[in-house]
Structure formats: structure tokens, C-alpha cells
Design a protein around this nucleic acid. Structure first.
Lengths: 120, 120
DNA sequence: CCGTATCCTCATAGATACTG
DNA sequence: CAGTATCTATGAGGATACGG
């Protein structure tokens, strides 16, 4: 399976598969989540909120989210520059799902469950 | 950031981060989703349901889901062997969220949106 | 302040052959 | 039928330096 052109339709058209391709990745859900609770965040604020991210990944992830129309990038042509990120309407539609995931995760953590198998 | 021991607590304890580590990966959500709609599936049935998966990945993914107690593996000591997979209670708790994701994905697909930026 | 541009590592996953 | 066992490939993500 070299590229998605080879994927049969019933997989390409699977909502779960599609959605995961769109908001999967290491930081996307967390970024959307933080943008929801803070409404608007500047680049540097996001960087501080996600201390484990590099500038390269942050920029790249924000570009993908923007291209996919899940977030809005507002640029102020000032010196020094200022850029604000916020959720788009489509992005906001994903919040209930991330919230559910967040609650479930918190609950599991509360149970004192070990860290997940993957990446161990 | 080499391994999770170096992750600060406020990240390790982030529900979103945790949940994604637990059900991220290319096939986990899809497997849970199919197990929910079919209740019980044998190894070969799962393989046929996910035609783009290899035996190696299927086995590996099922083991991780089992170790994380999201699915139940029931083995019949017969010849030829028979193994059935089903959702655990914890795994079933994730269905509403996968359902939300699925609906959102279907809706987006219905809008004729292009494929996501990532993996393109 | 808000990024780009390189180079590089390593986990994730694919291909293929074989087994109880 | 339900897996193991190897080997290999790919690309997501990391480190670091620099630019408007």
C-alpha cells in the first residue's frame, strides 16, 4: 500500500479512517483542545502550552490544521509580528469528541492504570 | 524527548495525550469500531474487514488492545484453531467517541472535501 | 516574535516466508 | 485457522542553526 490512490473506496470513505488521518498526529488534538479552552492563542503561547513541541512541528502542525480549515490564522502586520490562532467552526465541531476522549483519559489515569502498551 | 520517563507530569497526565497514545495508531479505532458493530469477530473475519492490514500488524494491534484491556480474546482449543475478539467494558466506553468521529468524518466526506493534508 | 531550512534518527509499518 | 519470524522501507518527528 504505497499511497492512498491504491486504497479501495470503502476504506478511503470510512469516516473513522478519514477523521484519524485528519486529526491524528502527535499534537493536533491537543492544539485543538487548548484553542478551545483559551479561545485565542498566539504562536508563542501555544509553544509554551506544549513544552514538548519543536518550532518545526508546531509550525507544520498549525499549517496542516489551517489547510484543513480546522483553525484560523490571523496575522497582524506589526513589528514585532503577532499571529493569533483560533478554532474554525468545523474545528469546533470536533470539541465534543476531544472532550469525551479527554474525560475518558482522565478517568483512566485516575484509576492508576499503567501507561499504554504502545511506545513502551 | 527520547522516552516518556522524561515527560513532565502535566503532559503525562493530560487525558487527551494519554487517550491518543492508547488508541492512536493506524488501525486501533477501526478495529474497535468494527467490533462494536459486529459484537464478535474472529481473526480471519477481522483480517477480511481490514483488507489493508498485514497479519503482523493485525496480531500486534490486537495484542496491544488486549494488553490495554480494551478488547477480550477468547481462544477455543480446537483443530483448526478458533479465536474470537470482542469489546471489553472499557473498550465499549470509547464507542461514543469513535461514533462521533465517524459521523463527523462521514459528514466531511459528504461535503466533497479533499483528502486531508497529512500523508499527502 | 514568529517562524524557515537542513540534516538525521528511529519508531511504525510493509513484504514475505514459515509454523502449531 | 491463527498466528511467528525476519528483513526492509518510509516518513513522522527531533535537533539545531539561521532569517524577516
Amino acid at each position: 500500500m504505497k499511497n492512498k490512490e491504491e486504497l479501495p473506496d470503502h476504506i478511503k470513505n470510512c469516516g473513522v479512517e478519514y477523521a484519524f488521518r485528519r486529526i491524528g498526529g502527535k499534537y493536533k488534538a491537543r492544539i485543538l483542545w487548548h484553542l478551545n479552552s483559551k479561545t485565542i492563542l498566539r504562536y508563542g503561547e501555544l509553544k509554551r502550552t506544549l513544552p514538548d513541541i519543536t518550532t518545526k512541528m508546531l509550525t507544520q502542525t498549525l499549517r496542516e490544521l489551517e489547510d484543513d480549515q480546522l483553525i484560523i490564522r490571523k496575522m497582524y502586520h506589526e513589528v514585532p509580528p503577532k499571529v493569533e490562532y483560533s478554532l474554525s467552526d468545523t474545528g469546533r465541531e470536533l470539541i465534543p469528541f476531544i472532550e469525551h476522549l479527554h474525560n475518558w483519559g482522565q478517568q483512566q489515569l485516575g484509576k492508576g492504570i499503567r501507561q499504554p502498551t504502545a511506545n513502551t
